[in-house]
């Protein structure tokens, strides 16, 4: 005899993206004997009513999660303005003095837009 079929219940984490170009997001977990079956279960179990453009299944045992203690390592001080634009806000006033505008996020990210202007 075999193991009673208990090993049939392998754990898989399911990820999916909503549409082409979108990042994948975690959905839920399911039980299946292998990744091929997990893949054909995934959409109908978790995304019956929403559009899906891609699905990933990952064996749970291949996911290295954090322990509760390790989650402590995710905390940090709120003193890192130098990493963000918040630390450089004074430039706005400076540039105004030279009759120029600050190159802020809104301005810079607009440069990638279409060139019609």
């Amino acid at each position: 005899m075999t193991n009673n079929g208990r090993e049939f219940y392998q754990e898989f984490e399911v990820f999916s993206s909503k549409s082409n170009g979108e990042q994948v997001q975690h959905q839920f977990s399911l039980l299946a004997p292998n990744e091929e079956i997990a893949l054909v279960m995934a959409q109908e179990n978790f995304m019956r009513r929403q559009p899906v453009a891609d699905i990933w299944v990952v064996k749970r045992s291949n996911v290295r999660k954090m322990t509760q203690e390790e989650k402590g390592s995710l905390q940090r001080l709120d003193n890192k303005e130098y990493r963000t634009t918040k630390g450089y806000g004074y430039l706005k006033k400076k540039w105004r003095h030279y009759e120029q505008n600050i190159l802020d996020e809104k301005e810079i990210l607009s440069w990638g837009g279409d060139d019609k202007k």
């Binding site: 075999t2 193991n3 079929g5 049939f8 392998q10």
Partner: peptide, 12 residues
């Protein structure tokens, strides 16, 4: 079905 597809379910 579950026995047949169990990854470690080798028949002895």
């Amino acid at each position: 079905v579950r026995e047949a597809l169990s990854p470690d379910g080798a028949v002895v």
